[in-house]
């Protein structure tokens, strides 16, 4: 196991990450966590995220950490940055974010 790199590559989330999709995404996350407590999620294609989506990511992160791993978020899309900023959660996830100029 090379350290820091998740085994199965990043999990790509796209479109809505919200109350409508939360249940399905939770299943995906649980499946990934079965194999490893280290997980990277690519958020580049996320068009919409709400509180349900945020708390799902938070729960996933906490679960990873409790199992000795971690959850890393990469390529935050603008809508994701927007809500993370609104809720002041960026530091909680602790991931480097790229603030685009537009």
């Amino acid at each position: 196991m090379t350290h820091g790199i998740p085994e199965a590559g990043p999990l790509q989330l796209s479109g809505e990450v919200n109350i409508f999709t939360a249940a399905a995404i939770r299943e995906q996350l649980l499946a990934r966590l079965e194999t490893s407590p280290r997980l990277e999620i690519d958020l580049a294609e996320v068009s919409e995220i709400d509180t349900a989506g945020l708390q799902l990511l938070l729960a996933a992160k906490l679960t990873c950490q409790s199992k000795g791993g971690d959850l890393t978020l990469v390529h935050h899309s603008a809508p994701v940055l927007d809500v993370m900023d609104l809720c002041n959660l960026t530091h909680v996830f602790g991931d480097p974010v790229v603030i685009s100029s537009n």
């Binding site: 109350i19 939360a22 249940a23 995404i25 939770r26 996350l29 708390q55 729960a59 996933a60 679960t63």
Partner: peptide, 8 residues
């Protein structure tokens, strides 16, 4: 924890 979470 994620396993206990009701996502809705």
């Amino acid at each position: 924890a994620l396993s206990e979470l009701d996502p809705e």
